[in-house]
Design a protein around this nucleic acid. Structure first.
Lengths: 343, 343
DNA sequence: CTGAAAGCGCTAACAG
DNA sequence: CTGTTAGCGCTTTCAG
């Protein structure tokens, strides 16, 4: 591939009448090296177009300066914010990111984990796929004590730390808000209940209802994939319900917004006929009319926190198992989609 | 870090009374290895939990099976779609992706390129930062003949292939559409003209105007960063214009949509007072009311195409310089935001 | 079909 | 402050 021969530390060493070890140390800013030597070496390296060979170095040091990241999908507003946050912190600390997506499939997740393992990432950050039920595919990491951290969609099967928001509380707040607005028949739409994020929001929803003395009805809980298309289907389903809800709490803004548009197209008045609350504070929540009440979900900060926690651990500053879980703040942003005259 | 000793091919070799060379070959499905030996080796490897050491292998083979990707930002709808497309193709072909973001800064881009270079990625895929004016930072790749490919925001300074859409044509179509709708004073809002995507759309806009015999006025071209905030500022600027435009063509849906919302908030009727056309077919374009006419921009496909072009080249199937540039199709999606009674 | 041997480029004892 | 030495784990001629 590369026609020109690569310059090595030996070339520099020879030209400067030094040993390779000295050159190596100089290049790595080893304190016990004469400043002048260091300058000479650096100058020569630049002159020759030297580039350090990461593999040789990794092979020796048994560290890769690389973090693996496995996410369900790269292309969601939330996830790309998380990744953006991660990249900044990782980059600043001199780490690289190897990124792959499971596309919500357990099989892909498994193979991605394997790849990360073979690539000897220094640490692995994972947000679980929709249908992951077993965790044996992470066994290699646990066994080799390679730090593993989950974010957003977590598990505590493996005793690894997780970065999450308080989904129960968020679900509760969203529901309580609808109740305060006079809703008594609240539909909750969420994702696969295997995942903590969805199960917890549902739990919060139920708590809020119970606390308000409203009966919890199973037919008012819908599980779908929270996609835009699912939002359209949801609207159809709502229109065909015998007893239509007067409030809807959806675990995703994108899904909520598409549902709203469809209902509006069919002549529904929002929030008068049905009040809506979404989740994520996605960009679309401010574009829809009426603007969507939602839960602000700090994706970028979550990414930053996940990586900095990981790196602190890798640097030995912080034992990773000492932190079993970090919970981030969320808050309800009230907008027009849910505001009605008090009952 | 890892408490347990790693299993190497030597361990397997010893246990099986073979040479390391044979084990290596067996593991790599070398044709000249007895099927039985191969099976024995693979079984043993599995049993011992062997994992190949990528560095040692890379160090020898001088290839990394890794593609570097540098994008302006990870968290835009368009870019995350591109990356999602890239990941799928790369993964399928057994390549990994090292991803970093320039955050639209030339300095970051430079340092990211350097990192990719030191990491000896097999190929580099780049979408240029906003303010990149020189291309010396890519010299290492060119010199070492490491394939370099640009997508979306490209340059032909380096004679590298680029994957693009026909921005001139798209800009022209968008503008012509507004003209057909009776607009005669069309404002064009776009990004830094250093970047082909924005310069070309502007060129298309101008062509369309000239073709229709409409005077091209410099005060009707606005350059900003196309962010949501810029959209709000834009609306303010429009409201303060002496001669307000009757049509606006914005190079980004997000920016367009925020501008529209602000104008609507100030009492403007859209599209009656001002017709809008955006760019990208972002999710928000279907949420805003009236829905935004826009140019469909196939992000995922662009990502897929970029990586498959790169990989074909790496496999030697296709010389990379033979393809100097690939242009992808776009199309105008007409929605309510631009439809007015014919003049 | 299999083995021996050399070396990819770097770093970390250890010694001076 | 600098040099010597050894070896990380793998692949690849070259020989059988």
């Amino acid at each position: 591939m590369n026609m020109e021969k690569e310059v090595t530390i030996y070339d520099i060493a020879e030209l400067l009448q030094l040993s390779a070890a000295t050159v190596s140390r100089a290049l790595n800013d080893h304190p016990a090296i004469n400043i002048k030597t260091r300058q000479k070496v650096n100058a020569k390296a630049l002159e020759l177009g030297y580039r350090s060979n990461t593999f040789a170095s990794n092979l020796r040091k048994k560290t890769t300066q690389t973090l693996g990241v496995i996410v369900p999908r790269l292309n969601s507003h939330f996830m790309s914010s998380v990744l953006a946050g991660m990249e900044v912190v990782a980059n600043k600390a001199g780490y690289h990111m190897l990124i792959s997506q499971s596309l919500e499939s357990f099989q892909n997740e498994k193979s991605n984990v394997r790849t990360m393992f073979n690539n000897r990432v220094d640490g692995l950050l994972v947000s679980l796929a929709y249908d992951t039920e077993t965790y044996d595919h992470f066994a290699g990491f646990v066994k080799k004590k390679v730090p593993l951290l989950f974010f957003d969609r977590v598990t505590d099967y493996l005793g690894c730390p997780g970065i999450v928001i308080d989904n129960i509380k968020a679900g509760q707040e969203a529901t309580e808000h609808l109740i305060q607005q006079g809703c008594v028949r609240i539909l909750h739409v969420t994702g696969n209940l295997l995942r903590n994020v969805y199960a917890d929001r549902l739990a919060g929803y139920r708590q809020a209802l119970r606390k308000a003395g409203i009966e919890v009805r199973e037919e008012l809980v819908v599980v779908n994939d929270l996609s835009a298309e699912a939002g359209v289907d949801l609207a159809q389903a709502i229109m065909h319900m015998e007893h239509r809800p007067d409030g809807v709490f959806v675990s995703s803004d994108v899904c909520a917004v598409n549902c709203m548009k469809t209902l509006q197209g069919a002549g529904y008045q929002l929030p008068e006929d049905i009040a809506f609350v979404g989740f994520n504070n996605d960009h679309v929540s401010e574009i829809i009319e009426p603007k969507l009440t939602t839960i602000d979900y700090p994706g970028k900060q979550m990414g930053e926190l996940a990586v900095s926690t990981m790196i602190n651990h890798l640097k030995g500053i912080q034992a990773i198992d000492s932190t079993s879980s970090i919970t981030m703040h969320t808050r309800l942003i009230v907008r027009a989609s849910s505001q009605r005259a008090k009952s």
